[in-house]
Amino acid sequence: MARDAGLEEVIREELGGRPGLSEKAMFGGWAFLLNGNLLCGAREGSLLVRLGKGSDGWALALSDVELMVMNGRAMHGWVRAGADAYGDDIMRKRLLDGAIAFVKTLPLK
């Protein structure tokens, strides 16, 4: 899949100038890291969000959000939000806030 420059920019705006935020190519798209830990990613048509194992049930109940699957393997704790989900400002903010809350619990890398 190709990168989605528009989604990447929306994520940058949402995350702001948060200390410890970095970016790099990953997942066939663009990844955002917080203090060295994966936070979320953008690919054409998908926002990948890290919520942590056992903490993703609320997100999976949302419309156009599903469990992330890579190479046929379920990635528990990660969700893939489609355009209807990440295009909704409130839903996107809720997903990214959930990712930030989880990643802040991880040790710095």
Rank of each mutant, 00 (worst) to 15 (best):
L21Q: 05
G45L: 03
G98C: 10
E13C: 11
A83I: 01
G52Y: 05
G28Y: 08
L48D: 09
G57I: 00
D89M: 00
K24F: 04
C40F: 03
M70Y: 11
E14D: 12
A85T: 06
R43Q: 15
A83C: 05
C40V: 07
C40E: 07
I100V: 12
R18Y: 09
G29N: 01
S46H: 06
I100D: 13
E13I: 14
E66H: 03
R94S: 11
K24L: 06
R80T: 14
G57D: 06
R94G: 08
E23A: 12
E44N: 11
W58V: 04
V49N: 08
I11N: 08
F32S: 04
L21F: 02
R3A: 14
S55A: 08
P19C: 12
A61W: 05
E9W: 13
H76K: 03
A5G: 13
L106N: 11
L21M: 06
L47C: 08
L47H: 03
R50Q: 15
G77I: 00
D4E: 12
D64P: 09
M91S: 13
N35V: 04
G41H: 01
H76D: 09
K109E: 14
E66K: 02
E44Q: 10
L21H: 03
R18A: 11
M68E: 13
A42R: 06
G45F: 01
E23G: 10
L38R: 13
L47G: 07
M26F: 06
A42I: 02
S22T: 12
L51F: 02
L34Q: 05
G87K: 12
L39D: 10
D97Q: 11
M1K: 09
F32I: 02
L34R: 04
D4P: 04
S22P: 07
A25T: 15
A61T: 11
L95Q: 05
F27K: 04
R18Q: 13
M91F: 06
P19F: 04
E23Y: 07
A2Q: 07
E66I: 00
G6S: 07
